[in-house]
């Protein structure tokens, strides 16, 4: 499963919505995802992927989460 699918699934579970409603360019604010929500999601993905994700930039879109994870996995 690619990173976007992983993130989309995680968000869909958190929000109680269908995974098809989530696209990379969606603003997290629009989804009702605040900084605590994204921190919680990243924590779950850390466990799943066995990596540590350190945030250096503010997360605005779904793609930002994907990028943060991808760079952590690369490191």
């Amino acid at each position: 499963m690619d990173t976007f699918q992983l993130v989309a699934r995680g968000l869909a579970t958190h929000l109680g919505i269908d995974v098809s409603e989530i696209t990379p360019e969606l603003e997290l604010m629009e989804l009702g995802v605040d900084s605590l929500d994204s921190a919680e999601l990243l924590m779950e993905l850390e466990t799943k992927l066995g990596v540590e994700i350190e945030l250096t930039e503010k997360l605005s879109t779904v793609q930002d989460i994907v990028t943060a994870i991808d760079s952590a996995v690369k490191d």
């Binding site: 605590l36 921190a39 919680e40 924590m43 850390e46 466990t47 540590e52």
Partner: peptide, 13 residues
């Protein structure tokens, strides 16, 4: 069981 990094950001609120 899992360490400090697994404490939820929603724990305190």
């Amino acid at each position: 069981e899992s360490g400090a990094r697994r404490v939820s950001p929603f724990f305190v609120p």
